[in-house]
Design a protein around this nucleic acid. Sequence first.
DNA 1: CGCGCCAGCGTATGGTGTACGCTGAAGCGA
DNA 2: TCGCTTCAGCGTACACCATACGCTGGCGCG
Lengths: 249, 249
Amino acid sequence: MPANEQHGIPSVWTRPRARREQPALSREQIVAEAVRLLDAEGIDALSMRKLGTRLGAGATSLYRHVANKDELIELVVDEVYGELAEPDVARSAHWRDVTARRAHGLRAMLLKHPWIASLLGEVGVAHLGPNLMRLSDRMIATFEAAGFALSESDHAVRTVFAYVTGMTTSEAAWLTMLARSGQTEQEWVERLWPAAEQAAQAYPRLRKGYADQRGKDPRATRDENFAYGLDLILDGLEARLGQAGPAAG
Amino acid sequence: MPANEQHGIPSVWTRPRARREQPALSREQIVAEAVRLLDAEGIDALSMRKLGTRLGAGATSLYRHVANKDELIELVVDEVYGELAEPDVARSAHWRDVTARRAHGLRAMLLKHPWIASLLGEVGVAHLGPNLMRLSDRMIATFEAAGFALSESDHAVRTVFAYVTGMTTSEAAWLTMLARSGQTEQEWVERLWPAAEQAAQAYPRLRKGYADQRGKDPRATRDENFAYGLDLILDGLEARLGQAGPAAG
DNA sequence: CGCGCCAGCGTATGGTGTACGCTGAAGCGA
DNA sequence: TCGCTTCAGCGTACACCATACGCTGGCGCG
């Protein structure tokens, strides 16, 4: 390979191949691609090498924009929190409706990205991520407007959050396992049936519970389940509101 | 190194070193040691090599007793569920007290083994693990005895479980980060203060919340927090009990 | 006594996160 | 316009990971 420049030959080969045409690499781009990768292939597929390749870059190039993998994960988690839309206030501005819609939205988001089940335990409350902070603020605002004290609003937000993430993490883990196995929810339940019945042998209550669920649509059961606990919490909050401050909205 | 046997020299060296004096390896032993390792060094330190070494065995020997690392994790999770003691019925047999004590016990266990925060998202409800099944059964029994229908008892158990795991996962993640940093909760809060205030700049409610918490003992705050949400849920349940079936003790 | 079984081992493979030092283009002051 | 600094991205290297596979040698049973 001669140094073509010295010969002055004007050709594609001599020109120093204009800088990467795609505007290089940016933190936003990396995070967005990571989310796509996670959605497509799940948590185990997220490696710096694979992510780099997808971005047309080497693995270690990513480290210019992200301190390490853990930091990338923090960013990814906050990124998906950013997807949450504000509830449509026109539909109803009652604190209870607004909170319920937010909870359902959060659940839907978590189930859309089931891999975060595995990440929430490492990141906790996604420390100080801007999107999560915005969401917290909005939720607190809703409670304060309804008449809760600030400190109680804070408690309320944490409770709702804990419930939604706890319930949904478990759902997401279940769905992830299903996805890995390539079976439908219904198929899996049928296949697991003998084992489950065996395992529950000593516990008639559990066995009956399984049996009652047998015919039903598993997805509907999960929805119903989630709604039950959420209602419970909202009922509890409503009761507190009645007994303390002057209720609003 | 000559093959001593050929010379018939009777010595410690010729004798084929009596089988491993420790009774070899068993699934129970492996799981127990894994829990110790996790408690001592955290989730990142759990590798088959390290675990094998601690047991005086090679890494791959473990695979005789455990299909793969994921299976080991399922076993480990169920193992710690097994630590939960039944609440002392003598103290009070009221369903609400019993449930509250179970919830606090579960939280204490999860905080004692903060690494499970990272595992719950992968295992979901620790499918069919015997210890978890026993616990579920007991909890359902408590609700049924109190007058809830079976299906509602099931919902109630799931709700309490989701709340406790959700809230505690977040606490555990926080504590794990603290442990990694080697600082106390108080120190960390102080050091993080400017960043937190900065991040909350646009959200006066959050800023005020932080400020209100500033002087308090963080641990006490977490306890209080947990208790609030739990009470909320129990209130909700109590209300349902009143409006439906005939309430029992 | 002899044989089959099987727990545990050694080795090997293909992955991982990330430290380090190089290259070459871009931007900027003279 | 030149020349220097800065810095994005790369290639290589290291230590470690889970785990497949085939061997070995001791134990228990016939």
